[in-house]
Design a protein around this nucleic acid. Structure first.
Lengths: 238, 238
DNA sequence: TTAATTAACTTGTATTTACAAGTAAATAAT
DNA sequence: ATTATTTACTTGTAAATACAAGTTAATTAA
């Protein structure tokens, strides 16, 4: 583990307000304290408060109205995988159970990889893994992940069972996911997908192809995710 | 038409830089002028420049790197319907041809509407329309739209053929789309959907249910969109 | 030549100040 | 009582300033 760096004040304020909303201290429709009140409460200045509230708004926790204030927005019941929302994943990790299908292993990149790769990535080879994630006993995500093998010593030996990949990367390698791009398609389930997601063959499946950026420029995390959206929807903001 | 209000300086700068990137003045991988250079070039201060660059980064046009600068990001070839990106839609309207299936008409809201409605919305009834949008002769989107009938005089008489719904709302009613929430699913095409999108029945189709917010608080635009993602993917950021 | 240091950049965080613009409630005028 | 107006809030925009922290290239020392 590693000593975390000092957290910026606006980040700290963001996390506090976010937690208060998730814990129900502020409920949907409630008015947050005004910017000036938050300044006093937390001993910071207005631009700092505004920076925190801006993130809150971008991530869908509040709506801002000039002249009125910041109003708490409804919490989506759906699976919020589309919005990484800063530092934590949007699904409560409590309910989400992960099962490893293929343990992390070092290999070459596929020939027809879904995203273009840099030379460094190409040379380094990739760490590959497959997982299925369950929500309330139902398999929802079949997730194939790739990372370039750059400065990730002993990663194939780590315990992935009860910890998200993001957490491993953060705790052992200082790597934070900052955001990324994704392509979305609806495809018919292949035999393999239908087996893992308990679906019939050719049933519609949501396919996400994601390239995630990290605080380490040049290091990206790639994911091909197949989602069973029969019961749960994917939720996002735009 | 209406006289536009004065545009904020950071907004103006955003639009200029965005246009330069789209026009190829700055190409993928290029370094934008530094924040201080932009200050001088446009006669504004750094917080203003940073506000513009922050939006550029959020909308995926650039990546910022501390110590290095702002780097122009690749432009997605896919259909960017997932990111409304401020004031304009992300697909060049040039290539996107709209065909009206059901002309705008006033009616009652469906009983089992996809989003909860306020009392005011419920009472006002809704304006309903159906459209199919083509990209290079191929039908890609089958779009069912709903708006509450609040302060939209004569809207059912407007010419929608060559203009997007967003444009009509902006030009005649001062209404701007600010963002919104969406649910995403993969579903089998119904008979109706397959007819409009030239697909076989039960082929996978992407289904988006969107609630868009406007600058008029209390007025929302709802859309149920079915996408043919066989050839094109939907593109988004997170 | 090579390696370490320094200097000159870059963006990130934060304060302070000021006024504009939208909202809502209290107040005054009809 | 009703309608305008004022007032006191709210967030939005913008400037000027300072220092922290990351990157890169030039300089210096070995």
């Amino acid at each position: 583990m590693v000593t975390p760096k000092t957290i910026p004040q606006y980040r700290r304020l963001y996390e506090i307000l976010r937690k208060h909303i998730l814990d129900g201290v502020y409920k949907e429709g409630d008015l947050l304290p005004s910017e000036n009140e938050l300044c006093q409460l937390f001993g910071v200045t207005r631009p700092t408060v505004r920076q925190a509230l801006s993130s809150m708004s971008n991530d869908g926790y509040i709506r801002k109205h000039q002249g009125k204030g910041s109003i708490v927005h409804h919490l989506p019941r759906e699976i919020g995988i589309l919005s990484v929302s800063g530092t934590t994943s949007a699904v409560g990790d409590r309910k989400l159970i992960t099962k490893i299908i293929v343990k992390p292993k070092l290999m070459n990149w596929p020939h027809d990889f879904m995203f273009p790769l840099s030379e460094l990535e190409q040379e380094s080879g990739c760490i590959y893994m497959e997982r299925v994630r369950f929500l309330e006993e139902i398999p929802i995500f079949y997730d194939i992940s790739f990372i370039a093998n750059i400065n990730l010593p002993r990663i194939t030996a780590r315990q992935f069972e009860n910890r998200s990949l993001f957490q491993i990367l953060r705790d052992y390698y200082h790597i934070e996911i900052k955001g990324g791009d994704q392509r979305i398609k609806a495809i018919p389930a292949t035999a393999k997908i239908s087996r893992f997601l308990h679906l019939k063959k050719d049933q519609p499946v949501l396919h996400l192809e994601r390239k995630m950026e990290t605080n380490n420029p040049g290091l990206f995390l790639y994911s091909s995710i197949f989602c069973n959206t029969e019961k749960y929807s994917i939720f996002g903001r735009f």
